[in-house]
Write a protein that binds this DNA or RNA. Sequence first.
DNA 1: CTGAAAGCGCTAACAC
DNA 2: GTGTTAGCGCTTTCAG
Lengths: 361, 361
Amino acid sequence: MSTIQDVARHAAVSVSTVSNVLNGRTDKMRQETLARVEAAIVALQFRPNTLARQLKTGQTPLLGLLVPSIANPMYGYIAREVETFAQEQYGYRVLIGNTYRDQEKEASFFEDLLAHGVRRVIVISSLADERHLERAVQRGMVVVSYDRRATPGETSEVDHVAPDNFEAARIATRHLIAHGHTRLAFATVAGMTMSRSNKIRGFHAAASEAGLREHACVVEGGPLNEYGDSVIGEVGRDLARQMVKAEARPTGIVAVNDLMALGLMAGLREMGLSVPRDMSLVGMDGLFLSAISNPALTTVQLPVTEMARAMVDRAMTRQSESGKDVGERVFTPTVLIERESVGPPPAIAQAAGTGSRKANT
Amino acid sequence: MSTIQDVARHAAVSVSTVSNVLNGRTDKMRQETLARVEAAIVALQFRPNTLARQLKTGQTPLLGLLVPSIANPMYGYIAREVETFAQEQYGYRVLIGNTYRDQEKEASFFEDLLAHGVRRVIVISSLADERHLERAVQRGMVVVSYDRRATPGETSEVDHVAPDNFEAARIATRHLIAHGHTRLAFATVAGMTMSRSNKIRGFHAAASEAGLREHACVVEGGPLNEYGDSVIGEVGRDLARQMVKAEARPTGIVAVNDLMALGLMAGLREMGLSVPRDMSLVGMDGLFLSAISNPALTTVQLPVTEMARAMVDRAMTRQSESGKDVGERVFTPTVLIERESVGPPPAIAQAAGTGSRKANT
DNA sequence: CTGAAAGCGCTAACAC
DNA sequence: GTGTTAGCGCTTTCAG
């Protein structure tokens, strides 16, 4: 690996001249010198060492990205968008960490980022407690969280970008209601986060609007263990069992996200129930997987690309010094993608002579 | 951020003493001094700056991980295992990059890694051409590739860790044959990689064993565009169409991977075909998603965790100087997970009086 | 316009 | 045993 010294020697100039061309201060430079330096750079295949540069400038073109588990397709999706945009727009690379929803792992990730000179982080946490994020900000980091802030009143030190989860759940729930469902359930996993509680509020709001608040319940599976997202099948089975044996079995289910909906489908099927004949199901996220499930999942599409870009922009634009221009940006999901997992509730279907054509053999 | 100087001052010792305790050279040190230094470190919340350290040592505890797209659940799965193991076992963080199967993006990722002082990389590439990897090795990197090497004869500069794709495909194909299938197809995407061609060889080998070589064809969809993996639904539809209109329609299909199998299921369903009644399907990978599909997918489970660990171990253990102790480690997948996507072929099913009970309405 | 020189925070000889 | 010191590769005043 050649150094700036080598280039300087090769071009017969001083290192600072080379440094100047490296940093674009070429305006007041003799053409010929510039050309010589550039030639030397090419000849020696010189690439400035980011590390040495950062030691001096205190900036390293690295973005931290913290996710519960990159094996979860939703986080994989977000991560891809974040990485691509950070790279193309800002020339940043991303340093990723799985936290398995563990407080300590999150904290340790921040420590390492700091040690690596990384000062910009995007956090997708399932932890309601944001104090460790605030602490990171105090230590000079710019942190952007993918969720609403917990305390809308207080000034937070961390930026927030999130989908309008309240609205997403409301849209999903209304869709079920529009199809005639009156016994509703919201399926989620143990552990409360802002996003989950907002979704539940949206679910309840839609139920209340329709005078169905009494018939809208929340069922909870899990929790997701350290293996997290691959265990979704079991959680779905759990939940399916819960719902099937409920005295007044719900007919329309809003799942906290697409993966849960997929797990639920599997669980329901194991219990001998068919979607949408016996139960209707709507998800939220809009994963590409929802399009190829059987039945294809009706879901609320979140604007993932836009949110990812907004997070990167926030992380890059803000100055770490001031905790001032911190904000919250909420993206409203507007698109409900209708596919096959929602139909009329069983009773209505029967009355209309559509359902129970094929009995469970 | 406090520095080693601050700590030295606080503990009233010299920086080298502090450096010594930081690097575990505490054996020939007075208890009391050690205690004082440690106290100072805690008091000042001192964390050594990795960058400065690396500038000196030429080593940075970062592992590069290059994947076609982290949104692909299989790569997400591998990435999670790699990250977790690298972190827990070696204290390394991982720097990730999506290459979208693009030669230039891969090259540019390597450039950046080099500039960041990263010298160890795990590459999951869909590019058959390995020259850019060799070049990276020449520049002092340790690179481990997730695939067989292209030229088993020649000495390669890059390490290889891979599943036994030949065997995996053979197991999958034999399973179909054992169920009575005689018209076989292998479903893949455009673009040839070592892993794909090995799978095809395994497929053909199993067919030949059973004297079915004549009835074993390869169908190809795609290619995966830059959005890659989210487009799998369309590819599946394509392929389904191809197979349905083939003059002698295959009854047993081996999919190049689970995602392809899932896409194919959706495509087949759209064409009015039912799995496994009309067609049997087996995947390879063992994604958690295969367990919750409908029907649940029969698949060959790859030892992902073991392979991820082997890759990390290789990347960490090898010395960058010598391109000598390079090797190839092939993991044999032994487990076929039987689920619901394989049944007898339609003709046999009819003869046995099991199938076509419910006609396509 | 270009060069010399002082560090950024840490490590590792080499002295004492 | 502990302190001094010379860099790692680069940026950035500050002279010339």
